[in-house]
């Protein structure tokens, strides 16, 4: 399989993730969209790593996974506490910081 197939898949995943973030209201689902975008990027990293025959891309992918894990912890914690106080997880309702 060529690299372009991997990149095509990564692009499709990224577009799906972007659409999810922009179109869905449930913050859990939005969160999943973000994860999907990150993993699309990871896939692109790995494909390029393989293409160039070095480990830089794989290293970057590990970094992304670590950061994504940390982000999930914080993000889910925020979502849970929002749900506890406001009984909703819709992103459209979270407008406390609005001008």
């Amino acid at each position: 399989m060529t690299v372009s197939a991997y990149l095509l898949l990564a692009s499709v995943l990224f577009v799906i993730g972007t659409a999810t973030v922009l179109l869905r209201r449930n913050s859990i689902i939005v969160f999943m969209g973000i994860e999907l975008m990150l993993n699309a990027a990871n896939l692109a990293f790995l494909a390029f790593s393989r293409m160039w025959g070095n480990l830089d891309g794989q290293l970057a992918a590990f970094f992304v996974m670590v950061v994504a894990a940390a982000e999930v912890v914080v993000g889910l914690a925020i979502i849970v506490s929002l749900f506890r106080t406001r009984r909703t997880v819709s992103v459209d309702d979270e407008n406390l910081m609005r001008h």
């Binding site: 922009l22 179109l23 992103v91 459209d92 979270e94 407008n95 406390l96 609005r98 001008h99």
Partner: peptide, 12 residues
């Protein structure tokens, strides 16, 4: 300030 709608998806 009008840009700051509080509508998170528009920010995205």
């Amino acid at each position: 300030a009008r840009i700051q709608t509080g509508f998170v998806r528009s920010y995205a």
